[in-house]
Structures are given as structure tokens and as C-alpha cells.
Design a protein around this nucleic acid. Structure first.
Length: 254
DNA sequence: AACATCGCCAACCGCCGTGAG
DNA sequence: CCTCACGGCGGTTGGCGATGT
């Protein structure tokens, strides 16, 4: 048996939203805030499925949406993020303020795929189109680890692993030196790493966008030195990263 | 002008993860 | 534990305007 439907389909509208429906939804959310999408349609006087209301709000009506054409910088950021994350549109959208996962997904499928094809790059693998199929060059795994002995302050954290491959096998068009794991730091039993030698650019700089307003380290890669504003951690994919962990909790609280 | 095809994108569908009971 | 409701996500569809024939 499948799950029961999320709403009474027989009594719900489908298809394009009308101006009146939009107005009702906006007015209701302004008055009561987001949440409890299941009961929202009835409370707001809408003949819509709760999911449909949520989607309409998130993808179209939310006041903080950017709308309009993607910039060249956004294009390149999407491409690089996609090469790292794959079709994780919500994660990619998280790095593009004012853009939704649906918008980025559509934009990818209609514009960026073609753009990469024109460059001779396979949009699925980010490798040259004429290159024979090979093993994936880089595999990145995210592993939720819980109850790790040493992780006193984190209830959950992410371990990212990047498998190394010879440089000459990498796609020349992409900077695969990018890493989404917390930068490797040597920890010697006898000689713990001193805070002042922890050198690492923020994620935006790692993507080659040193001049971006999203840069959190105020550092260009070329400059080669780092002055972390907060020695207890730094920004990684929108998450607070400490020496050994990604702080999910603080990001969720924001 | 009429019809066919293409491209875009809003919206839907179904699955999955999570948390409450 | 187990079940179930809910929110969230990614893949897909369908309507509609633009463009080509």
C-alpha cells in the first residue's frame, strides 16, 4: 500500500495559479508565517494541495527571490558546484542567494547543459565529450558520523573524502584541485598544529571567486596567506566548519 | 495565415528522511 | 521499536509563447 494522498485531489485546483490565489497565499503567510502546509490551504481559503502552496511560495512568491537573468558569475558558480555536488539542486541553490533549486535546475537543463556541450564538455561528468569513458575521476562521499568519541561538541558532522587521481587525467577546464572537505591539516601527537599556521581560503575563494561578496575570508588565493577571522572555524558550503567537524546545528539555527 | 516544432519554466509526482506519538 | 504524517527533494510533465516552414 502506498502512502495516502497529501490532500483531497477531487477538491483541489491544479495547474497555473491565478492572481487571486497568489494574493490569498501571500496574505495568509504574511499574517501567519510559513509552516503547516497541510492545513494552510483550508485556512487561507485556497482549493490547493498544501504541497502546491509550498512550492508556489518557495519558487515564485517569496519576497527575497532575485528573479531575472543569471549573471556570468552565477553561471560559473553553478557549473563548479555541479561538478562537485552533482544534481543536488537544493545544495547548489543554497550557495546562490535569491535563487531556488527549481530555478537552477531549469536553468541548468535549458542553458548550462548546452553551454557545456558547446565547450566540448559532458555536462553529466564535466569531462571532455570525446574522451573515452573511464572510471569517475573523483568520488566525494558524505558520511554522517554519530557518536564519535572525539566529537564532544557536535552531534553530527560530515566526513568528506576525495580520492586522488593523477593530474594529467583531470579535465583541463575545471579546477579539480577544488576540495569540499575541510582542508587537510597535519596533527602530530607530539606537535599539535598551531592556530596561526592554519592556512585555508574560504569556499568561495576555492571556487576562484576571490572578489565575490560572498567571500568570508577576505583573501585572494593568489595572496597565499590567510587570516581567518574566527580561529574556531570557517565557512564551508554554508556550514560552520571547525578543525574536525561541520557544525550543522549552528547553520540550522540561522 | 496556418500549422509544426522548439524551448522555457511553472507545476506536479512520487520517493525519502525525519520526528512525533 | 514501529507507524504515520509531514516537509523537502529531484525528476518529469504540460502549457504556452517564440520561431521556423
Amino acid at each position: 500500500m502506498g502512502r495516502s494522498p497529501c490532500c483531497e485531489k477531487a477538491h483541489t485546483n491544479k495547474g497555473a495559479w491565478t492572481k487571486e490565489e497568489d494574493d490569498r497565499l501571500i496574505a495568509y503567510i504574511r499574517a501567519h508565517g510559513e509552516g503547516c502546509w497541510r492545513s494552510l490551504p483550508k485556512a487561507a481559503g485556497l482549493l490547493r494541495c498544501g504541497k502546491s502552496c509550498r512550492l508556489r511560495w518557495i519558487n515564485y512568491l517569496r519576497p527575497d527571490l532575485k528573479r531575472g537573468n543569471f549573471t556570468e558569475e552565477e553561471d560559473e558558480l553553478i557549473i563548479k558546484l555541479h561538478s562537485l555536488l552533482g544534481n543536488k539542486w537544493s545544495l547548489i541553490a543554497g550557495r546562490l542567494p535569491g535563487r531556488t533549486d527549481n530555478e537552477i535546475k531549469n536553468y541548468w537543463n535549458t542553458h548550462i547543459r548546452r553551454k557545456l556541450m558547446n565547450r566540448g564538455i559532458d555536462p553529466a561528468t564535466h569531462r571532455p565529450l570525446n574522451e573515452p569513458a573511464q572510471e569517475a575521476i573523483t568520488s566525494i562521499s558524505f558520511t554522517n558520523v554519530k557518536e564519535e568519541k572525539d566529537m564532544v561538541n557536535a552531534s553530527a558532522f560530515v566526513v568528506c573524502k576525495e580520492e586522488k587521481i593523477p593530474l594529467e587525467e583531470r579535465c583541463p577546464d575545471l579546477n579539480l584541485e577544488l576540495r569540499i572537505s575541510p582542508p587537510y591539516q597535519h596533527h602530530s601527537e607530539s606537535e599539535p598544529l598551531k592556530p596561526e599556521v592554519k592556512i585555508s581560503p574560504c569556499f568561495v575563494c576555492s571556487l576562484g571567486l576571490q572578489n565575490s561578496k560572498d567571500c568570508s575570508c577576505n583573501l585572494g588565493i593568489s595572496n597565499g596567506t590567510s587570516s581567518r577571522s574566527d580561529s574556531s572555524g570557517y565557512d564551508f558550503l554554508g556550514l560552520k566548519v571547525t578543525d574536525t567537524s561541520v557544525d550543522y546545528i549552528s547553520s540550522e539555527m540561522e
